[in-house]
Write a protein that binds this DNA or RNA. Structure first.
Length: 197
DNA sequence: CAAGAGATCATCT
DNA sequence: GATGATCTCTTGA
């Protein structure tokens, strides 16, 4: 089974569409010879300069600069002094938007390509489930930190995504987390969750 | 269970 | 000087 790397054309689309389409895709993190795999189960969309929940709503700053860059690059920052958040920049250059990867299901290290449902007991093993659930835990599991900021993830280098061929059965929409300050944007249901079980 | 507090620092005002 | 796109642990019912 082929597992095509997601290209710029995938990310260079409306952000909420990308956020939904990312569910069921696979994160590959390579460190030396080791590879770690994760099936994406939860994302959030941050859409443009008018979205008050987005860091970019305050304008262009050194930190948010990458959000204004081309699609298919990472935007990684430190939150609360101790956790990292992994975002993927979307849409065209100079339009600041990104998708926060909030959760993934770690796959076995021997994973070679392709995913079929239902997942095996091993894939659903207790303990796996919680390892990358939540933006901070996900970055901890995949060892993602600011050294990977502004990385081109359309190339198989350190961190990239592939299409698993899997389609989520059902997508749950919820308001985004921790954005009470975002005025009329705080209740937008731009958080997308699915389950593979 | 649910609720609350603490950890800890880059970033922006 | 304040704050946050979080998580974990503790407390108490």
């Amino acid at each position: 089974m082929t597992n095509k790397i997601l290209q710029t054309s995938f990310y260079n689309r409306p952000t909420r569409q990308v956020a939904q389409d990312l569910l069921g895709k696979i994160i590959i993190r390579q460190i030396g010879r080791k590879k770690y795999y994760g099936l994406i189960t939860e994302t959030e969309a941050y859409c443009g300069p008018q979205d008050q929940a987005s860091h970019a709503s305050k304008g262009r700053t050194p930190r948010t600069e990458v959000m204004f860059g081309p699609a298919g690059h990472t935007y990684i920052y430190l939150i609360y002094g101790l956790y990292h958040c992994f975002n993927i920049v979307t849409e065209k250059k100079d339009y600041p938007a990104a998708v926060l990867i909030r959760g993934a299901l770690p796959l076995p290290k021997e994973w070679l390509g392709g995913v079929t449902l239902p997942l095996s007991k091993r894939e659903m093993a207790e303990g796996q489930r919680g390892l990358a659930s939540g933006p901070g835990k996900l970055c901890r599991y995949f060892k993602i930190d600011k050294t990977l900021n502004n990385l081109d993830i359309t190339k198989p280098n350190k961190l990239w995504l592939v299409d698993s061929g899997l389609k989520p059965q059902r997508i749950i929409r919820r308001p985004r987390v921790g954005v009470d300050y975002a005025g009329k944007y705080k209740d937008k249901k731009w958080r997308f969750i699915t389950r593979f079980s």
